[in-house]
Design a protein around this nucleic acid. Structure first.
Lengths: 189, 189
DNA sequence: CGAAATATGTCAACATGGCTGACATAAATG
DNA sequence: CATTTATGTCAGCCATGTTGACATATTTCG
């Protein structure tokens, strides 16, 4: 749990930009100095990260919007439409468009709520789960490689860094969502 | 340069998800187990990260496309249109649309290349620089806060992790771009 | 019970920012 | 001089976001 993380180790396979920036005193970012490195690395890393999935999705004529819906439904089986809207922060019209396609093509199904019959609870089908897991697998490969290349303890540091990057207001909601999904295991699909 | 990073310190202000995952052995991701935490944190963190800029841009009736152009031109004054296209990986038609608006509204200007008069070298104006720096400042605030909250040594770890997340093929190009921009200081604007 | 609130869906229209394809111009190059 | 290169531009399509207005079924509440 308490992890001693000695990061003297370098990636060792790429032109190294850490040398320059640490020699210019990157520790904590001198007030007023933009964190150019992190800003740009986030841009390029995120693009490559989502790019993995994009290629596969293209074969299904799906886009990132479909991926996001499929991902969260897979992770939170039985979730309400309203919850999904709240997570994605898009309008129901935008969601409706891609959700309809996912349902029509048999990746997602909707069941009436047992208690509240107005609700249309969302589940992935086995076909939907397969695709969601394939996409998650691709992204996990990249993450696992990166964590391995960056050294032990990085998973924890990355998690804490990314958590700290979240808006403070929504942070707990995000963390609760992740924690909840980690427990909600396949009530059925 | 060699940084000893003791990460026993926790963020300490949010519901903590690291406890659960470290207790389930998050070290290096058990083969086949999707890295749900990093996948979802990347999604939410990136959204919040770009959200900072989005709010400001909206006041100028600009979008993320304008931001990206302005950012890279600010960072690489005198860059060629072709270089920018290559960095952004969009078509010249897409670039042309936003670039024209930035030029028309006085954020970016184009000068004939001294050697090659076909080139239209790109520079930010002082107005453009001001906006670019404002946006970078907002994002840097978030990053600096996150790095501070996550503890010393995180800047280096974050940089190395994000670098390792890049496609291996394009990695050196990205690192060279960042390193080059760090040196290219205002040939004028 | 009946009115109001809630969960969801849908139609229409519009904006942004990707894309392809075709074509135009000026300047460099061989 | 012919070709290639750097850039711009017109026209139209697609994906995915938006607003606003309604429709329907169901639950909730006075």
């Amino acid at each position: 749990m308490a992890d001693i993380n000695v990061t003297a180790k370098t990636t060792g396979k790429t032109a190294d930009l850490t040398g320059r920036s640490s020699s210019s005193g990157s520790q904590s970012i001198a007030a007023g100095e933009p964190a150019w490195d992190i800003i740009e690395l986030l841009f390029f890393a995120y693009r490559d990260f989502v790019g993995d999935a994009d290629e596969v999705l293209a074969k299904f004529s799906f886009g990132r919007a479909h991926h996001r819906v499929l991902h969260f439904v897979n992770r939170n089986p039985g979730m309400k439409v309203a919850e999904l809207l709240d997570i994605l922060k898009i309008t129901k019209q935008s969601l409706g468009r891609v959700l309809k396609q996912l349902v029509d093509q048999g990746y997602v199904l909707q069941k009436e709520g047992a208690n509240d019959r107005r609700q249309r609870l969302l589940y992935v089908t086995s076909k939907g789960e397969a695709l969601a897991m394939k996409l998650a697998g691709l992204q996990t490969e990249r993450i696992a490689r990166a964590l391995k290349d960056t050294g032990p303890g990085t998973h924890d540091t990355a998690r804490r860094f990314l958590t700290a990057m979240l808006d403070a207001e929504g942070r707990d909601r995000v963390l609760r969502l992740i924690a909840r999904a980690d427990h909600a295991r396949r009530p059925r699909a």
